[in-house]
Lab assay of single mutants.
Amino acid sequence: MTEYKLVVVGAGGVGKSALTIQLIQNHFVDEYDPTIEDSYRKQVVIDGETCLLDILDTAGQEEYSAMRDQYMRTGEGFLCVFAINNTKSFEDIHHYREQIKRVKDSEDVPMVLVGNKCDLPSRTVDTKQAQDLARSYGIPFIETSAKTRQGVDDAFYTLVREIRKHKEKMSKDGKKKKKKSKTKCVIM
Rank of each mutant, 00 (worst) to 15 (best):
T158L: 08
F156V: 14
K167I: 03
Q131P: 03
I139D: 00
K169S: 12
K175C: 06
V152G: 03
R149A: 04
K172G: 13
L159R: 00
K172S: 15
T144K: 00
A130D: 02
Q129T: 12
T127S: 13
Y137M: 11
H166G: 09
A155S: 04
V152E: 01
V152I: 12
K176W: 04
K178P: 15
D126Q: 05
T127C: 11
A130T: 04
D132R: 05
A130Q: 03
D153Y: 04
D153F: 02
K167C: 04
K177G: 14
L159V: 08
K167T: 12
Q131R: 15
A146S: 00
Q131V: 09
K175S: 13
E168R: 09
V186L: 10
V160L: 03
T158M: 10
A134V: 05
K128H: 13
V125G: 10
R164S: 05
K128P: 09
V125K: 01
A155V: 08
I139G: 01
E162A: 07
S136T: 05
D153M: 10
K172T: 15
Q131Y: 10
V160Y: 03
K165Q: 08
K128Q: 14
S136Y: 14
Y157P: 02
T127V: 11
L133Y: 07
Q129R: 13
K165S: 05
D173F: 09
F156K: 00
F141N: 01
K165G: 11
R135F: 04
T183D: 15
T127P: 08
E162F: 01
K184E: 15
I139Y: 13
Q129H: 12
Y137A: 05
A155K: 00
L133N: 03
Q131M: 09
L133T: 03
Y157W: 06
R164T: 04
R135W: 04
T127G: 11
Q150V: 11
S136L: 08
K165M: 09
M170V: 12
D153L: 07
V125H: 06
L133I: 09
D132I: 06
K169N: 12
H166D: 07
L159W: 01
K167P: 01
D132A: 09
D153K: 04
K169A: 06
V160T: 03
Q150R: 10
Q129F: 04
K176S: 13
K128N: 13
A130S: 05
F156R: 00
D126V: 07
V160E: 01
Q131C: 14
H166Y: 12
V160P: 00
G151K: 03
D126G: 10
K128C: 10
F156D: 00
H166K: 06
T158I: 04
Q129N: 15
D126L: 08
V152P: 02
Q129I: 11
F156I: 15
K128M: 11
A146F: 00
I142D: 00
K184P: 07
Q129A: 12
R135Q: 13
K175F: 06
K176G: 13
F156C: 07
E162T: 06
D173T: 08
S136F: 07
D154W: 04
G174K: 15
K169G: 06
D154T: 10
K128L: 10
V152Q: 03
Y157I: 14
Y137K: 05
R164L: 03
Y137Q: 05
K167A: 08
G174V: 08
T158F: 09
D132N: 11
A130F: 15
Y157Q: 14
L133R: 03
F156W: 03
M170C: 13
A130P: 07
K167M: 08
L133G: 03
C185V: 01
K176C: 12
K172E: 05
T158N: 10
R164C: 05
V125W: 07
K167D: 11
Y157F: 09
A130G: 09
M188V: 08
H166P: 02
S136C: 12
S145D: 14
R164N: 10
V152S: 03
V152K: 01
T127L: 08
K177S: 14
D126A: 08
D153P: 06
E168V: 09
S145G: 05
Q129L: 11
A130I: 14
D126I: 04
K128I: 10
R164V: 07
D154A: 11
Y157L: 10
V160K: 06
E162G: 02
Q129V: 06
A134L: 02
R135S: 09
L159N: 00
Y137C: 10
V160M: 02
V152R: 01
L133P: 01
F156E: 01
L133D: 06
V125R: 03
F141S: 02
V152D: 02
Y137V: 08
K147E: 13
Q131A: 13
K167F: 03
L159Q: 00
K180M: 09
D132C: 05
D126Y: 07
K172I: 15
L159E: 01
A155D: 00
K169Y: 05
Y137G: 03
Q131W: 06
D132P: 02
Q129C: 05
D154P: 05
A146I: 00
F156G: 00
D132E: 13
T158S: 06
Y137S: 09
M170W: 11
H166F: 12
D126E: 11
D153H: 04
H166A: 12
D154H: 09
D153A: 12
H166E: 03
S136G: 11
V125C: 12
K128A: 12
T158R: 06
K128G: 13
K180V: 02
E162I: 02
K165A: 09
F156P: 00
S136D: 14
D154L: 10
Y157K: 12
Y137L: 15
I187V: 15
M170G: 12
L133M: 15
V160A: 04
M188T: 15
R164G: 05
A134E: 04
T144F: 00
D153G: 06
I139S: 03
A130R: 02
E162W: 01
Y137R: 02
A155E: 00
L133K: 07
K175V: 07
D132F: 03
D173L: 05
V160R: 02
V125D: 05
V125A: 14
L133S: 05
T158V: 04
D173V: 02
A130E: 08
H166I: 06
E162V: 02
K167W: 02
S136K: 11
Y157N: 15
D154I: 06
V152T: 07
V160H: 02
V152F: 04
A130Y: 15
S145F: 02
Q131H: 12
K167Y: 05
G174S: 14
R164Y: 03
K178S: 11
V186A: 14
L133Q: 08
H166R: 11
T183N: 14
D154G: 07
D154F: 05
K169L: 06
Q129S: 10
D153I: 10
G151W: 02
K177C: 14
Q131D: 12
R164W: 02
A146Y: 00
A155I: 07
D132M: 08
L159T: 01
K165T: 05
